Simulated scan of single mutants.
Amino acid sequence: MPSHLLQTDIVIPALTYCALLWWVSRGMSWTRRLIAAAVTLALIAWIVIAERGWN
């Protein structure tokens, strides 16, 4: 696997987000958890695409 596909500057924040979402969402319903996860992952994807497009 090429090293540019698995960078720690992308993987570590994603893992941190998953842990934070689990901790914060303990009192949330599954629907709200999925919405929060989908919105945040969409924002992450948009930022990554924008950064790679500008280079």
Rank of each mutant, 00 (worst) to 15 (best):
P2G: 05
S3V: 00
H4V: 05
L5E: 03
L6I: 12
Q7C: 07
Q7L: 13
T8G: 04
T8R: 09
D9N: 09
V11Y: 06
V11L: 11
I12T: 13
I12K: 11
I12M: 04
A14M: 14
A14F: 15
A14V: 14
L15S: 10
T16S: 12
T16R: 13
Y17C: 02
Y17S: 06
C18T: 11
C18I: 14
C18D: 06
L20T: 09
L20F: 08
L20M: 07
W22Y: 05
V24N: 03
V24I: 11
V24P: 01
V24Q: 06
S25L: 02
S25M: 03
R26S: 05
R26W: 04
G27Q: 04
M28K: 08
M28D: 07
M28Y: 12
M28W: 15
W30F: 02
W30A: 02
T31C: 01
R32A: 05
R33Q: 08
R33K: 11
I35P: 01
I35S: 02
A36V: 03
A37I: 05
A37H: 08
A38G: 08
V39Q: 04
L41M: 11
A42M: 05
L43S: 07
L43N: 10
L43A: 08
I44F: 15
A45D: 10
A45L: 12
A45E: 11
W46C: 13
W46Q: 11
I47V: 15
I47S: 11
V48W: 12
V48A: 12
I49L: 15
A50W: 15
E51I: 13
R52P: 04
G53D: 14
G53A: 15
W54S: 13
N55E: 15
N55T: 12
